[in-house]
Amino acid sequence: MQFNKILVPVSGTQAGEEAVKLACQLARKSKGKILAAYVITVKRSLPLDAEIESESKKAEGILDRVERIAEEEDCEIETDLLQARDTAPAIVDEAVEREVDLILIGITYKRRFGQFSLGNIIPYVLKNAPCRVILYHQYAP
């Protein structure tokens, strides 16, 4: 199985960074490239193009770090900063527009009401993704 374009949504978590490393390994085999995207969610009380400096700075920092990881892994990477109302549709839309072969998402162990939860983003992406999806679950002892 070859993956020429892999989309890795990142949010600054360790699982996300590990997912980038894994994506690099997968991409290297097929001489493919990685697209790392950070989505800034903009509240509806602001225009979508509102520039929220603190968020942009945080996002730039995370994307810079992801670029360094890819550089260390000797992997071609393209980073993108997106502004959207919702993270999940933005990820799916990005995958459609960039015609990626795979979405690789790093997830952390989350609990909601005492139960393990995937949150809202993962189920939406799994349901609507136009390509294969791999979930990288961070080991939580």
Partner: peptide, 14 residues
Amino acid sequence: LRPRRIKRFRLRRV
């Protein structure tokens, strides 16, 4: 040189 991303951000129009 770390060139800035060409556009600071792109709007996802959905």
